[in-house]
């Protein structure tokens, strides 16, 4: 065989790690149609149904007093649970990634618990703990405190369900970064707090933000656990997802989809924010030197 015979025409040359175009096209088409069917179409349905009777009806659905109170409650719940989980997540990550202590693997497992337990079950746990017939029910009642079927219960359930988000994002990054920079800070005279604030936290800030975004989205959208503890009291203990359910069950489709569209909008905002932050995380973790030796 001569050399010229071995040569393949440029147009037909295929890199060794590439599939044939037939395979590539069918895979792409399959994933696209799957995405359209399961993600894009539902999103479109939400908005078309919400605007079916015009913008006026849409606006009325959102500005209805009970809807408005559901929105306010959701904002309140998110306003409490996200900062709490931010603090908890940072503390847990700092402890797990930078220190050795007894029971560390147990703590890591516990952080994952809300992911493993069905939200309905976690709601029930709180009913069993703080409900009027629960373990602490009598004691709470004696103090005049109501947790279940009240706002504190909704907050508790949301905190429980969303607490892995920040920790789960931050722990792997902190572990990957090791403790050398912290040690350097200590030898330079920084105390523990300064080391955390000026060295550890800036190094994980994008992962923290990413965790907060996910935590926020889940806190707003949480249904199962909140549904069990809230008691569905209109205008009092209904969050946005619960309010959507009630409207839907009452065949009030326009209002249901109008309120649901708020959650859908939130999802879109979350996706955009998440993509932007992910890009920053990628940028800040690709720390390997672009080495130019001098």
């Amino acid at each position: 065989m001569t050399a010229s015979q071995q040569r393949i025409a440029p147009g037909r040359m295929m890199p060794p790690l590439q599939e044939s175009s037939w395979v590539r096209w069918s895979l792409t088409a399959f994933s696209c149609s799957f995405l359209i069917l399961f993600l894009f179409v539902p999103l479109v349905v939400v908005f078309t149904e919400a605007l079916r009777k015009g913008f006026g009806a849409y606006w009325a659905g959102i500005t209805d007093p009970t809807a408005w109170s559901a929105i306010k409650l959701t904002v309140l719940v998110v306003g409490i649970s996200v900062p709490l989980n931010l603090v908890f997540g940072l503390a847990a990550s700092w402890a797990i990634a930078k220190f050795e202590f007894w029971g560390k693997s147990l703590l890591i497992t516990l952080i994952d618990l809300p992911f493993a337990v069905s939200p309905v079950v976690s709601g029930l746990i709180f009913v069993l703990l703080f409900g009027i017939h629960g373990w602490f029910g009598k004691w709470l009642d004696a103090w005049g405190l109501q947790v279940i079927f009240a706002v504190p219960g909704v907050v508790l359930a949301t905190v429980f369900v969303t607490f892995p988000f920040v920790a789960r994002e931050v722990i792997p990054l902190m572990q990957e970064q090791g403790t050398e920079q912290e040690q350097a800070a200590l030898t330079l005279g920084a105390n523990g707090w300064q080391t955390f604030w000026y060295v550890t936290l800036p190094n994980v800030r994008w992962a923290v933000l990413y965790g907060v975004i996910l935590c926020n989205a889940r806190a707003m959208g949480e249904f199962g656990a909140v549904s069990v503890v809230s008691g569905h009291i209109r205008g009092k203990t209904n969050t946005i997802p619960l309010h959507v359910e009630i409207l839907y069950n009452e065949y009030n489709f326009v209002a249901a989809f109008a309120v649901a569209s708020l959650l859908a909008l939130l999802a879109l905002v979350t996706l955009v924010a998440k993509t932007l932050v992910e890009r920053r995380i990628h940028y800040s973790t690709s720390l390997e030197p672009t080495t130019v030796e001098s």
């Binding site: 050398e180 920079q181 040690q183 350097a184 800070a185 200590l186 030898t187 330079l188 005279g189 920084a190 105390n191 000026y198 060295v199 800036p202 190094n203 800040s284 720390l287």
Partner: peptide
């Protein structure tokens, strides 16, 4: 450590990259 007044130089520099 922080009161020993030692300067420590690490093998992998440990510079604060931010």
């Amino acid at each position: 450590v922080r009161h020993r007044e030692v300067g420590f130089v690490f093998q992998h520099y440990a510079l604060f990259r931010h």
